[in-house]
């Protein structure tokens, strides 16, 4: 029956359908228009090799508060702002939160279209999003910001420990499936397809776990409080970040009686070479050729990382390790005794 169906009729309907779909996209275009009106172009320090003198930001109050990324671009007496309508202003630096790497600027204006941070939404993985920014400084004057479409890939935390990401921020982020780690994009807005603000685009960041560039945004609920405090002039700088808490007496494998194989490779697997008698290791029946895989819940990919993980543990505490013996995974708790050397 379908074969008799006139094809051109179907094609015609199809085109009508697409027109309707296009009409729906116009809805999205309107949302984009309204959101672009809240974006600003920021010009400041930089402009030399690899250090672009521009970045993105967005307006967060009708009287001209602007949220952006805290970066070297703001490290100058004269930061200028170009609004979406082309008007230019000198901006005042109200303050920055080095922990979140966000800053608030202020321009002397009124009745500006803006994103209300109170109304910002939280996203979950799979949400469709738009990233608005002045990447590559493509837009000038009253030319609107660039818009990229994507999906929230996953909501995860930036692992600050172990230097995976070179950033002081280790909170939750939205990982995006669109390339936003472009010059000038930091400080841009992440919105959903309804035009609701969800995040601020992060600075260019490399994931040292697999040497890829990360595309991400910091959720607004992470920065909201700092922004309010900066606006109110109450923000207390936390520039001095608390160092990672190291135990006073860090653990070392030798204290447990473990002698690892000579560490000659970049990533020598943490094989046990010898177990010293009368130690925690021998009490727990650790054997030569056991491969230590985990300390606590942290993967120990090499002798180096095993030592690093153990440093996080106080000598007085028990150490839970997971080892591979043959094809078996074994969990062993090691407790250094008071007499152990």
């Amino acid at each position: 029956m379908m074969k008799q169906f006139p094809l051109h009729f179907v094609a015609m309907l199809l085109v009508i359908g697409l027109d309707r779909a296009a009409a729906a996209d116009r809805g999205l275009s309107n949302i984009i228009d309204q959101s672009q009106a809240k974006m600003v172009k920021i010009y400041g320090a930089g402009g030399f090799r690899g250090m672009e003198g521009y970045q993105s930001g967005f307006i967060v109050s009708p009287e001209g508060h602007i949220l952006t990324a805290l970066s070297y671009v703001l490290d100058t007496d004269r930061v200028t702002i170009t609004l979406n309508d082309g008007r230019r202003f000198d901006a005042k630096f109200l303050g920055g939160d080095p922990r979140l790497e966000v800053a608030v600027l202020k321009i002397d204006a009124a009745q500006l279209p803006h994103f209300d941070l109170e109304k910002a939404v939280a996203l979950s993985a799979g949400a469709r999003v738009l990233a608005l920014s002045n990447l590559f400084n493509v837009a000038m004057g009253d030319e609107p910001a660039s818009v990229q479409n994507g999906t929230v890939s996953v909501v995860t935390r930036l692992e600050g420990r172990r230097g995976v990401f070179e950033t002081p921020y280790h909170g939750p982020i939205y990982v995006l499936d669109v390339t936003t780690n472009n010059p000038g994009a930091a400080g841009g807005a992440l919105i959903n397809h309804r035009g609701e603000l969800a995040g601020i685009l992060g600075k260019e960041l490399r994931n040292s776990l697999n040497n890829t560039w990360l595309n991400y945004a910091v959720p607004i609920d992470q920065v909201r409080q700092s922004v309010e405090e900066i606006k109110a002039g109450k923000f207390t700088s936390q520039a001095e970040l608390p160092p990672e808490k190291m135990p006073a007496h860090p653990m070392d494998p030798t204290l447990l009686g473990i002698v690892l194989i000579p560490d000659v490779l970049e990533r020598t697997p943490a094989y046990v070479d010898q177990v010293r008698p009368g130690t925690a290791a021998s009490r727990a029946a650790l054997q030569p050729d056991d491969l230590v895989l985990l300390v606590g819940n942290h993967l120990t990919q090499s002798c180096k990382s095993l030592r690093k993980e153990m440093e996080m543990i106080d000598r007085a505490d028990a150490v839970k390790v997971t080892i591979l013996r043959g094809q078996e995974l074994l969990e062993i708790t090691l407790q250094a005794g008071p007499d152990d050397k």
Partner: peptide, 20 residues
């Protein structure tokens, strides 16, 4: 997938130790 040991670099390509 997590791996233990291995090279850091293959043909000038730096390999992270991250999960796959």
């Amino acid at each position: 997938i997590e791996t233990i040991g291995g090279l850091e670099r293959v043909d000038k390509v730096l390999f992270g130790a991250g999960p796959t």
